[in-house]
């Protein structure tokens, strides 16, 4: 197995990912570009893990690190965490300002959600109450 092809794939994916991040207006599609960037790193890590040699602790013991594969699994997990938070923010954006277009200039001051309506909603035990603190633009 030669490693040239994996490295090239990684480089191409990185380029495509960067293009995807920059060439999209829809926030979710920007995230797709981010996923491609992450995948690029993953491919490179897995490819390089085939070259890994056990880490020599002493003359008699050595540890197989599998650093590349383990890192890839970690990155996949990180991507899951990232996508959850990012999508929550995107949905929040959609609800508050009505679109998820990243080329749109912000419409003045976006009201940060103050603590009061949250606390009131939480204490009322009904976080979904639509009448609470309507403060959109």
């Amino acid at each position: 197995m030669h490693l040239t092809a994996p490295v090239l794939l990684s480089a191409v994916l990185a380029g495509i990912g960067a293009y995807g991040v920059l060439a999209r207006r829809n926030a979710v599609l920007v995230l797709i570009g981010v996923e491609l960037l992450l995948s690029s790193a993953n491919v490179l890590l897995v490819a390089m893990s085939t070259q890994e040699r056990p880490y020599v602790l002493s003359e008699t013991t050595s540890v197989a690190m599998y650093g590349g594969q383990v890192m890839t699994i970690f990155i996949i997990t990180l991507a899951a965490a990232e996508i959850v938070v990012a999508l929550a923010i995107v949905l929040a954006m959609f609800r508050v300002i009505g679109h998820i277009d990243v080329t749109a200039a912000p419409e003045g001051e976006i009201e940060p959600a103050t603590d009061e309506p949250v606390a009131a909603a939480a204490s009322a035990g009904d976080p979904g109450s639509p009448a609470q603190g309507v403060s959109g633009p």
Binding site: A18, V21, L22, V30, V102, T103, A104, A105, P106
Partner: peptide, 17 residues
């Protein structure tokens, strides 16, 4: 930090590159 997000992204990625 009150610009257009996508141009901001563009600047960041270009600068990073």
């Amino acid at each position: 930090h009150r610009g257009v997000p996508s141009t901001g992204l563009l600047a960041v990625l270009s600068g990073g590159l």
